[in-house]
Design a binder for these strands. Structure first.
Lengths: 129, 129
DNA sequence: TTTATGCGCAACCAAATGGTTGCTTTTATC
DNA sequence: GATAAAAGCAACCATTTGGTTGCGCATAAA
């Protein structure tokens, strides 16, 4: 949160690091989505909303031991991450699921897993040669 | 963080909620893994480590503008989530990737997505009838 | 038109997070 | 044995997070 200080010996080769940074640029955007799912309550909310039906805040609160405002805060976190949309109808605001950020996360995970699998098979090929 | 207070009207039907809670028990365990990836720096670290090679803390620090201790803290977060293991060899401790928690996360995401897809196709079938 | 329900806003709080700095310890290297 | 490198430990700090409470405002229901 503070700015970077010294102690870092930033003087070394910078080209490779720049390249690595531009490669990672895509991933870093997914961090908020992962963070949004980094909480039990939110995981449960998403699971519930993925059933297709939209739910009002009060409805979602009735299923939990937390206060309405706590649930509201969690929903806003999910909303900022784009995982959920709120539509106000009458006096209640209903939340509905949006699967798109989830696909991005899937993407990251499979990419990482594939890279790992490839590394493993390279190792295996080398050992078995 | 505090305990739950009143304001919650916990007096209503409890059977369904208990059922829902036992269903969600599996997911909630995944929250720490999601949280561990909920940070740019950690996403980049994981991507780097998934190449198969283990890296020492200093090596990983050289690729970043943060201090060594900051990187260390991030690595410990990943380690607590089981995404990464540290093996001390000589004076350096090398971190290596462990893909298993990632598979669990994949599992959650595909489950949720599938539930969503099923809901969509039910809706479609209903409309097209 | 009262009354009840659903929600938003704001203040407040404790704990967790993400970062720094300084110092010590352990292990290589000269 | 002296020096340098890698890592650990601990204190400190500001900000974020996850929760509460109280109150006011719309909107629906009696």
């Amino acid at each position: 949160m503070k700015a970077a200080g010294p102690n870092n010996s930033r003087t070394s080769s910078d080209m490779l690091q720049k390249r690595r940074r531009s490669e990672t640029a895509q991933w870093e955007a997914r961090a908020p989505a992962f963070a949004a799912l980094g909480d039990q309550t939110r995981l449960a909310l998403v699971a519930r909303l993925s059933s297709g039906q939209p739910y009002s805040i009060s409805q979602l609160t009735r299923g939990s031991r937390l206060s309405r405002q706590a649930i509201t805060k969690h929903l806003r976190v999910l909303e900022r991450a784009g995982i959920v949309r709120s539509v106000r109808t009458g006096r209640e605001s209903r939340f509905e699921f949006d699967p798109r950020p989830l696909a991005d996360m899937q993407d990251y995970l499979t990419r990482v897993s594939q890279q790992w699998d490839q590394a493993l098979s390279r190792l295996k090929a080398f050992v078995e040669k």
